[in-house]
Design a protein around this nucleic acid. Sequence first.
RNA 1: GCCCGGGUGGUGGAAUGGCAGACACAAAGGACUUAAAAUCCUUUGAGCCGCAAGGCUCGUGCGGGUUCAAGUCCCGCCCCGGGCACCA
Length: 730
Amino acid sequence: LANIAAMTRQHRRFGFSYDWAREVSTCEPEYYRWNQWFFLKMYERGLAYRKHAQVNWCPQCNTVLANEQVVDGCCWRHEQTPVEQHALEQWFLKITDYADQLLADISQLEGGWPDRVLTMQRNWIGRSEGARVDFHLAGSGDPITVFTTRIDTIYGATCILLAPKHPLTAKLTTGRPDLAAAVQRMIESLEGRAPGDLEKEGLRLDAFALNPFNPIWPPDGRGDAVEIDNVNPFSDEQIPIWVANFVLMEYGAGAIMAVPAHDDRDHEFCTKYGITIRTVIVPAGDTAPLPAGGAFTDDGVLVHSGPYTGLAGDEARRQMTAYGSERGFAESSVTYRIRDWGVSRQRYWGTPIPIIYCSKCGAVPVPEDQLPVLLPLDVEITGMGGSPLQKVPGFQHVPCPRCGGDARRETDTMDTFVDSSWYFYRYCDPRNDRLPFDPQTIAYWFPIDQYIGGVEHAILHLIYSRFFTKVMRDLGLVQNHEPVKRLFTQGMVIKDGAKMSKSLGNVVDPDQIVEKYGADTVRLFCLFAAPPEKDLDWTESGVEGMSRFLHRVHRFVSKEHPAGDGSADRRVLRKLHQVIRKVTEDFESRWHFNTSLAAVMELVNELYQSEADLSPAALSGVVPTLVLLLAPFAPYLSEELWEQIGRQGPVLRVPWPEYDPALAADEEVEVVLQVNGKLRSKLVAPKDTAPTELERLARTDPKIQQHLDGKTVHKVIVVTDKLVNFVIRS
RNA sequence: GCCCGGGUGGUGGAAUGGCAGACACAAAGGACUUAAAAUCCUUUGAGCCGCAAGGCUCGUGCGGGUUCAAGUCCCGCCCCGGGCACCA
């Protein structure tokens, strides 16, 4: 309800028609039904699952948020409210299964989507190529898997760092209550933590790991590095195992090898705890000195790395990964930064998640013929503590669909980004009651040729809907791999540094402005102030300027004109056709309507200037076209003027004027005369004058003669209809 | 730190490698008016020479380069905006 209300409010303000959206409101029961249908299809395929996890929590919304909805550590709806980390049982959609496709298919979007959106998505997906390497627990020999993108630095690994929640952390602290308690404190300190810098904390466990590449290291973990070449190559190196608060369980393997000499974070950690730093990479070209006091993180040449010493980084990575694979302790691996999409919300609005929990049968999907699960109406919304649906017993207490026993309905609702991920498909077939939409119909319409939206959805809506499209494709519902061929990201309205948005309120009150100046003026100003992909600065004086312009047009069309002798007819007609061409081209290519409007203004200026010299026939030819040219920008005024000049409306149904290239062409052109690239004079010549003739004319120009006097002309450049440039030597 | 955009008058912004600043806003001066509003006209990148007509020089973040010619292309920086970030 909140969504649809906001939408209608916005669109009514600007006079847009939004019939389709009203017909396919994502808040309607039928839409809930198909959301739930999709959810269950994904549940069947393991793409929707429930897990206990550390999740983002907005204390203002009292709900969980997806990673994508956390902006600078704060809630996307409450930009001042830091998001907290809570451990909760939540529903997720497995977008990570599609990470590789979402990344790979970005290449299909290039050219059609703005680069920065594609870059943001690439960053968000965050593909890293590297290797998983098994270290081994000293004593038991159990593998400890780490993920690294720099296996070439493995001879410099001086400890293993485990995430606090790594299973091995628990295992290695059993029987050691002191360590277990310390780990517990570490976990708690990470929960509810405000974003920002984290002081690196570590906890040394009473265990060692063996580096599968067998470099030598004193088992007590202290002292200087031993010269690799001088020791027994068969003895295992033992490196200490630590728990570190900055190692993420959710990324890679939940454990890392720390290489302090070649990673900034590891360097900081190992310096703090006095763990030895061993250089195993030096800059290629051997002369560059190693940076003092920090890690050398660039690629280089390996040293102290056994048989790999002397290899370049990329070659070493290849060989070492191959060796590890052969011996079964390593494999090349790709890791993504993107996490599964947390879709559980503890809000009233949103589609109820169609799952019922039975003490005997577990989580049971609501059978398809019982969809949609609708929101109860007798609900009290307090905005406090947990989902309002949990306080509606009639909603929550239901029989199990499988065994009929007492069961509990899921009270979380879906993130409304689920709705918006596929609404545009439903637009094509809004009344279908058999399927979300008919695949045949979709095959005809999709993909969307042109989509328009704000860049703030680059890694929200625009990545979710790509994901949904791929899921729907795998369900056999659509054939397209991508939902949108071309994306246009429009800028925002800014006033005194503050942006105008649906969730943050209006910096400028459109109702007031429309009241004062009319919708045409407001629209015109928005179009004229900047090209549409840029943010536009709202200025009242700019709005007044547009109002003045519209009045100027209105006055010209309305007033009585003197019958001129027609001496200006040709000039005005040429201008008219040039303007038609300009506006048409702007519409067809780059949508820079600010320049279209500038052209229309030029035409109006020209009309005022030539008014006295225009024949009545020319005038009555130009005016209707002017009105048509203005119609897309100022539809209300244009409609009014169209009627005033005795034409039949509606003006927006009248075909767009066509320009005559011959009429638009200048008969005479101004040719710039340059000497050594500097503007010295100009001449007017008939269009398409031959280069030789242009040069001859240029040489007769007194100023040019003056500049050429006594000089040798080295070369003459002639660009037809543009310029003549004399290159001289003094 | 990495990855994308940008940087042009007092302001918003124009310029397929070919007259930098279109079109507007603002400002100043003037006309009309008893006055105001509205409207119209003129000036408006900087500097210099000239009584004037006019002329000259500089100028698109900085430094180089390519070219007859660079806001535009290439190389190296600086600054601003945005995205990602203990992601190993």
